[in-house]
């Protein structure tokens, strides 16, 4: 599977990473280089194999339902690039 320019553009848009027109070709080449190398995995027979999601605990450990956090609006907002009073500010979103 090899990426065409349109796909590179679509993936970059999905990932919200701006790629200038002039950067597309290089990105395409790099991604195809990596994907080409990954392609060898298709040779592995994985029939009947249960996918492994991760290591660690085998099951969730629930916590009790108690309010133990919050009430720290100032800390939550302290690093905001555009703090608007008690809110985070972003360019107006049109729904």
């Amino acid at each position: 599977m090899s990426l065409d320019i349109a796909t590179v553009r679509r993936i970059a848009a999905l990932a919200r990473i701006r790629l200038e027109e002039g950067e597309l070709a290089q990105a395409q080449a790099e991604l195809n280089g990596i994907l080409g190398w990954i392609e060898q995995l298709q040779a592995v027979n994985t029939e009947g194999v249960e996918p492994m999601a991760g290591g660690g605990a085998v099951a969730l450990r629930p916590r009790p339902d108690a309010v133990t956090d919050g009430g720290i609006a100032d800390k939550i907002l302290a690093n905001a690039p555009d703090r608007q009073g008690e809110y985070f500010g972003v360019p107006k979103v049109v729904e």
């Binding site: 133990t68 956090d69 720290i72 609006a73 939550i76």
Partner: peptide
């Protein structure tokens, strides 16, 4: 998934944890 409160009508961003 966090210990912040769920009550309705609180001051903005006052029921927010870092999570």
């Amino acid at each position: 998934f966090s210990g912040a409160a769920t009550e309705f009508g609180a001051a903005p961003n006052s029921q927010v944890s870092f999570v």
